[in-house]
Design a protein around this nucleic acid. Structure first.
Length: 439
RNA sequence: GGCCCUAUCGUCUAUCGGUUAGGACACAUCCUUCUCAAGGAUGGAAGCGCGGUUCGAUUCCGCGUAGGGUCACCA
């Protein structure tokens, strides 16, 4: 019988976390769920001076938004008494000692810190993605594991917590590889068995260095604010450094859980490509229902659009954006004319060298066709108009029609515009333009 | 600099010794089209170098090269 898998995501609440950070959470979650195990969120707040509640809140928000629900959540500071207990034992057994030395803050005052007594040995472990790694710990020296008996530091806290929570797989970024030997030394001194180590390749910025805030990495909540779908972001993050094989790329969270396989994790770091993320977002948008589309679009378009008009407009909007947030900048230009009648000068209505009367006659004819036309879909409108347009010249008919309705040189096709506007408004706009042309 | 890790198209990747080295994003061209999108088709584009092992290496090993990570009383 194999042991039940327990993984954890252990961020410190000292800032807003970016995709590189959450990507480790994605892998830890996927593996735990795949194995029917437990996923723990441990907030590493041992640096009490830098830890902030708002950052912790942001971490929780982000995780839940992504769909990475944890089975347990706690703060490392809640376990200090346990850290202290094990630390005392280490000191009693001579495996750690209190050292009086000058504070590193430059104040010159003498302070006591707790150092681990390094046995100076070679430690080795078999990383589940990188294979065998061994390090001579001699050059690590007697490293500090606590500021005082009641103020444990990272390495000690991690080792004690992972053991007490029964963590079986430590899944983290490869920047933690150098920390692993220290933590193994502490675990051995405490008599704890070693968990499996899984060091993930790093998420890189454009310059191939570790992604970081100062290189422009955004907190994941910023992607939410930009109108990305959590499923898309999750899918994207799962595919940085991992691939199930095969050619499908769009997967839901539950499918990812089903497919996840630790042995298929890559070793090399990967640059995150925003263009691909946008494409993936569009693919996930396409999987949403009409109601979901409408709800999201309404958030960005506001109340200016009557409900029935918005319903008709939804498919076109979805077609034209990759991310909902794009609507913020294009809504007036691309969709504003639906709710605000365009004001168009005579010259812009004319197609190429056509004269006023040509456009006027075409519009009158189209108007009479549309008066009896079926407006139930863009296709039905198109079916009504096209025979005449084919006969009279498509540009000469369709350009003035589209300009009359939208006032835009570049816009959605005229049939869809008619359909969205509805018969009454369509005819009203044609009349307005005919009025201008005949004056 | 010490220690550690990594190496297939511009980018993300497939290949578990034998393939015309496949896919996706991006890009280009064409089709569609009154315009702009969307969509469809096509195309260019890769195994870091040198040695081994092997009948055969992108794949296994070594060396080199390049890149990255890490060296706190942060995590």
């Amino acid at each position: 019988m194999t042991e039940k898998v327990v993984t954890r995501f252990a961020p410190s609440p000292t800032g807003l976390l970016h995709m590189g950070n959450y990507r480790t959470a994605v892998f830890a979650y996927l593996y735990a769920k795949k194995m029917g195990g437990t996923f723990i969120l441990r907030v590493e707040d041992t640096d009490r001076a830098r830890s902030r509640q708002e950052y912790e809140d942001n971490i929780v928000d982000s995780l839940l938004w992504l769909g990475l629900s944890y089975d347990k959540r706690y703060r490392q500071s809640e376990h200090v008494s346990s850290h202290t207990k094990h630390l005392s034992r280490l000191i009693e057994e001579g495996k750690a000692y209190i050292s009086k030395e000058e504070a590193k803050d430059g104040s010159g005052v003498m302070r006591e810190v707790v150092r681990f007594k390094n046995p100076n040995k070679v430690v080795m472990f078999d990383d589940l993605v990188r294979g065998h790694i061994e390090t001579d710990t001699t050059d690590l020296g007697d490293f500090v594991i606590a500021k005082s008996i009641t103020e444990p530091l990272f390495h000690l806290a991690v080792v004690v917590d992972d053991h007490e929570e029964g963590v079986t797989h430590v899944i983290r970024g490869e920047d933690h590889i150098p920390n692993t030997p220290r933590q193994m030394l502490i675990a051995e001194a405490l008599g704890f068995p070693h968990p499996f180590y899984v060091h993930l390749p790093l998420v890189l910025a454009e310059d191939r260095t570790k992604l970081s805030k100062r290189k422009g990495a955004l907190p994941v909540t910023a992607y939410r604010e930009m109108g990305y779908l959590p499923e898309a972001l999750l899918n994207f993050m799962a595919f940085i450094g991992w691939n199930p094989g095969g050619e499908q790329e769009i997967y839901s969270l539950s499918q990812l859980v089903e497919l996840f396989d630790l042995t298929k994790i890559n070793k090399g770091g990967a640059i995150m490509n925003v263009e691909k993320l946008k494409w993936m977002n569009k693919e996930h948008m396409r999987k949403q229902s009409h109601e979901e589309h409408k709800k999201m679009i309404r958030q960005y378009l506001g109340d200016a659009f009557p409900d029935d008009m918005l319903t008709r407009l939804v498919p076109t909007v979805i077609d034209r954006i990759n991310v909902y947030g794009e609507l913020t900048s294009i809504k007036d230009e691309e969709f504003g004319f639906f709710v605000k009648r365009p004001h168009t000068e005579k010259e812009r209505i004319l197609f190429k060298d056509d004269g006023d009367h040509v456009a006027y006659n075409h519009l009158q004819k189209v108007k009479s066709i549309l008066t009896d036309a079926d407006f139930s879909s863009p296709e039905s409108v198109k079916a009504a108009i096209m025979p005449y347009a084919e006969e009279a010249g498509k540009g000469s008919v369709l350009w003035p029609l589209r300009m009359s309705l939208s006032g835009q040189e570049k816009s959605i096709d005229p049939f869809t515009i008619c359909y969205v506007l509805g018969k009454e408004e369509t005819i009203r706009r044609i009349d307005d333009v005919c009025h201008i042309l005949s004056s």
